[in-house]
């Protein structure tokens, strides 16, 4: 191989100024090229208008015991369910250690909070100053994402082993606290950030 650096001054042994220029220019082109790629990759991320997150207000006064509605929050459907006393006790009786996912997955709590029924219900929701909310209502209300944590399908209400939610896509069974009990889904249905802004109005976000 011909030594392109060979010149009378260095005899090809020592790096020359030309070597430095070669390496510096090739390096600059490489780094510049890589930086140029970034706008083409980043343009696919959520745009500014998409990121300007909205909030959703849910009126709970129309919900009777055992009733459920689905609301849209940040582009995704969410279950809002006023649970019956039986549903609450069924969920509360289960020991957390027996759950496949033992974390609450609740945006209102710390990441390490356990998946107890209280940590899943709206007892964990914030309450605006001066607002009084009925304790029974708070423990009865359950608000979770309606997208199965497996691959995002919307589970069917009142079905499955626990008569709560059953995902038709790949057979995940959720209990009356929206916790995964059986099937391929890895996590409990996540709970969005929420605050009571009046006795019967819950704001998501």
């Amino acid at each position: 191989m011909t030594d392109v650096n060979s010149n009378p001054e260095t005899g090809g042994e020592e790096p020359s100024r030309r070597d430095f220029l070669y390496i510096a220019s090739v390096g600059a082109v490489g780094v510049g090229g890589a930086l140029t790629l970034w706008p083409f990759i980043d343009q696919m991320n959520p745009a500014a208008d998409t990121l300007a997150l909205s909030t959703t207000e849910v009126n709970l006064s129309a919900l009777e015991e055992g009733a459920e509605i689905t609301v849209m929050f940040r582009e995704r459907p969410h279950f809002v369910r006023r649970r019956t006393a039986q549903e609450i006790s069924e969920a509360a009786e289960v020991e957390v250690s027996r759950l496949p996912d033992q974390l609450a997955r609740n945006a209102n709590l710390e990441d390490s909070a356990p998946a107890t029924d209280a940590n899943r219900s709206t007892l964990s929701a914030g309450v605006d100053e001066g607002v009084e909310v009925d304790e029974a209502l708070r423990s009865a209300m359950l608000v979770t994402s309606a997208n199965c944590t497996h691959l995002g399908c919307v589970p069917t209400e009142g079905a499955g082993d626990y008569d709560a939610w059953f995902c038709p896509c790949h057979g995940s069974h959720y209990d009356t606290a929206g916790r995964i009990r059986r099937g391929p889904a890895p996590e409990n249905l996540p709970i969005p950030p929420m605050t009571f802004i009046s006795a019967t109005t819950l704001r998501l976000g």
Partner: peptide, 22 residues
């Protein structure tokens, strides 16, 4: 959502694919 199964990078990758939250 299959890409969401990847550890750590799962959520950023799916949101990058979607260009949104869904």
């Amino acid at each position: 959502n299959l890409f969401g199964a990847l550890p750590l990078i799962g959520t950023p990758i799916t949101e990058w694919l979607w260009g949104g939250f869904s």
